[in-house]
Amino acid sequence: MINVLNINHAFGDNQALTDISFDVQAGEIFGLIGPDGAGKTTLFRILATLLLPGSGSATLNGLDVVRDYKTLRTRIGYMPGRFSLYQDLTVDENLQFFASVFGVTVEENRHLINDIYVQLEPFKNRRAGALSGGMKQKLALCCALIHKPQILMLDEPGTGVDPVSRREFWDMLRRLRDGGLTILVSTPYMDEAAWCNRVALVQQGHIMAIDTPEALTAAFPKKLFAVRAVDKYRLINDLRSMETGANAYAFGEFAHFASPSAKIQVADVELFLQKKGHNGVEVKEAEPTVEDCFIDLMTDDSQQSTVDSPPGEITLK
């Protein structure tokens, strides 16, 4: 459904995208996962026919993003990362307006958005600018769907939305996918990867890996422990020095410790930490998540180390 081949794009000297290639199958949710500044939005703008790629090509449902952009615009639904509807128009006015510029009426396509619209209906005469974050997202989704697109593109839909609304929103996306829609979504939240059929991990304009979330975590090449101690900062530094190639980073209330050697056991880590004089040590084996995979790939990639990343967010230091 979506074929991206060797896309490169630079803003001046800043190489935003390097050799991006991937395919999205019809009827799947494909996630582009990566931190802010990874190039996700640039890629989205190219695929939404808003930005001409520096080089490379992309087709959506057989339509080229450069050559066939006019036809393509009627086939895709694009929801930018920032809320981009008219804040001074009401919910219904926005919906009517976007339907009319696509040459359709809300009535004829009501069935496409009915699930979502019922939640918006109580606020239908409220101005879009006065809606909550979650409601804004739902309205934007309705407006992106009203012309019956074949492909839905959502740039960071989870940003600025509370966890409950975020979950609801993903439920809607899954229902839309089950209805046959192809969905391309980008997100900086690693936990959202689990909702996608397949994900591409993006970092500094490169795709580091493409696979299903399950396959990615199954292929995690290191042994992972969740470790806790009183002095977290010293704990992370000590864990890093335990062996070469080991990595440690904050992960919620624990620190995750990824060791390259398969032989190492919980007891070894405990012993090491006790020798270092840590108090309140707790060590257990942990199942790798997409975030662990991402950090592992990222450290391999750039030899940069990560400290203090709260769950679901990557912070580079």
Partner: peptide, 13 residues
């Protein structure tokens, strides 16, 4: 500034 231009630009207008 409000980003609505971007949303309009992906329409067939």
């Amino acid at each position: 500034e409000m980003g609505t231009m971007e949303q309009l630009n992906v329409t067939p207008v």
